[in-house]
Amino acid sequence: MADPAPAHLDPSALGTKEYWDTLYTRELTNHAANPQDEGTVWFDDADAQAKMVAYLDEHCSNPDHEPLHHEPLDPSRAAVLDLGCGNGSLLFALRDEGWEGRLLGVDYSARSVELAGRVGGGRKGEREVEFKVWDVLNGPLSEVAVAVAVEGESETETAAGWDVVLDKGTFDAVSLSGERDGQGRRICEGYGERVLQLLRPGGIFLVTSCNWTEAELRDWFETKTRPTEAGARLRLAGRIEYPSFHFGGVKGQTISTLCFEKASN
């Protein structure tokens, strides 16, 4: 059995809000001077963004593939939440691929959200992608709630979880924070629990990391993430392949992307 006490990364400036505010202030200035400069696309050297979009297209919405849950996602309706949205590039890429449902990007840096909004403002002829200042670890869940019509009661709406929650480097940044929560844990230890609260039953969490291996991500989200009171937990549902390397007889890769499903058992 895995050790319940997780190993941690040493705290770094990349785990502070000040670092990201400074970075996105600079990227806002660059974008104002040259609108073609839309800022950093994280893990672009590994083509992670395109691979994540392709994975959702091929494995989650294509009925020719075995679905991850009881039915494939419908790109015309699926609600997608991007945690730590940066300049919004991942959601814009999904919109370009025909994901027409609600797309919301959140970030605790107001400067990030401002940049994403400005980049999105230059994109015409499509349904708007939403961006909001919200802290994944501390923000009220009601502020990012998904409302859906109850079948047979078109005038009534009820809260529901997100179909897809995305993370491209945000858990990495959270893992580099030295902050602790009210229980004395490093704040990254509560990240998976928040993801579970955001997902609907059967919803999926697609996470990309350069700081954690596949085995470590599985440990974080399958083993060390506490199940909900109803018994829902995160369960591995798939992975994305990247070019691998061999060193000292061990096979590895520079980044990892895993897909987890919110499962009841």
Results as ranks from 00 to 15, higher is better:
Met1His: 08
Asp3Arg: 10
His8Asn: 05
Leu9Cys: 10
Asp10Met: 00
Pro11Gln: 02
Pro11Trp: 01
Gly15Thr: 06
Gly15Gln: 03
Thr16Tyr: 05
Tyr19Gly: 05
Asp21Arg: 01
Asp21Trp: 00
Leu23Cys: 10
Leu23Gln: 15
Thr25Lys: 15
Leu28Ser: 13
Leu28Ala: 09
Asn30Ser: 15
Gln36Lys: 15
Gln36Leu: 13
Val41His: 11
Asp44Met: 06
Asp44Ala: 15
Asp44Gln: 10
Asp44Leu: 09
Asp47Glu: 15
Met52Asp: 10
Met52Ala: 11
Val53Trp: 04
Val53Pro: 09
Ala54Phe: 00
Leu56Ser: 03
Glu58His: 06
His59Arg: 11
Cys60Arg: 10
His65Met: 07
Pro67Trp: 05
Pro75Asn: 01
Val80Asn: 06
Asn87Ser: 13
Asn87Thr: 04
Gly88Glu: 11
Leu90Glu: 06
Phe92Asn: 12
Asp96Val: 10
Glu97Thr: 05
Gly98Asp: 07
Trp99His: 09
Glu100Ile: 04
Arg102Met: 04
Gly105Leu: 05
Val106Glu: 02
Val106Arg: 06
Arg111Pro: 01
Ser112Trp: 01
Ser112Gln: 10
Leu115Asn: 09
Gly117Ile: 02
Gly117Arg: 05
Gly117Gln: 11
Arg118Tyr: 13
Arg118Cys: 13
Arg118Ser: 14
Gly120Ile: 01
Gly122Met: 07
Gly122Tyr: 01
Arg123Val: 04
Lys124Arg: 14
Glu126Val: 12
Glu128Lys: 13
Glu130Cys: 11
Phe131Tyr: 15
Lys132Trp: 03
Val133Glu: 15
Trp134Pro: 13
Leu137Ile: 03
Val144Ile: 08
Ala145Val: 12
Ala147Gln: 12
Val150Asn: 01
Glu151Asp: 05
Ser154Ile: 05
Ser154Arg: 01
Ser154Glu: 13
Ala159Phe: 01
Ala159Asn: 06
Ala159Tyr: 00
Gly161Glu: 07
Gly161Lys: 04
Asp163Thr: 03
Val164Ala: 01
Asp167Thr: 13
Lys168Ala: 10
Gly169Asn: 11
Gly178Gln: 07
Glu179His: 14
Glu179Asp: 15
Arg180Glu: 12
Asp181Gln: 03
Arg185Tyr: 04
Glu189Ser: 14
Gly192Lys: 10
Glu193Met: 07
Arg194Cys: 14
Val195Trp: 03
Arg200His: 08
Phe205Leu: 05
Phe205Arg: 10
Leu206Arg: 07
Val207Ile: 09
Cys210Lys: 03
Asn211Arg: 09
Asn211Asp: 12
Thr213Tyr: 04
Glu214Ser: 12
Glu214Gly: 14
Leu217Thr: 08
Arg218Thr: 05
Arg218Tyr: 03
Asp219Lys: 14
Phe221Gln: 06
Phe221Ala: 05
Glu222Val: 13
Glu222Ser: 08
Arg226Gln: 12
Arg226Tyr: 00
Pro227Asn: 01
Pro227Met: 02
Thr228Glu: 07
Glu229Trp: 00
Gly231Pro: 01
Ala232Trp: 04
Ala232Thr: 00
Ala232Ser: 04
Leu234Met: 06
Leu236Gln: 09
Arg239Ile: 03
Glu241Gln: 06
Ser244Gly: 09
Phe247Gln: 04
Gly249Val: 06
Gly249Lys: 02
Val250Ile: 08
Val250Lys: 11
Lys251Pro: 00
Gly252Tyr: 01
Ile255Cys: 07
Ser256Ala: 15
Phe260Ala: 07
Lys262Gly: 04
Lys262Ile: 02
Ala263Phe: 08
Ala263Lys: 12
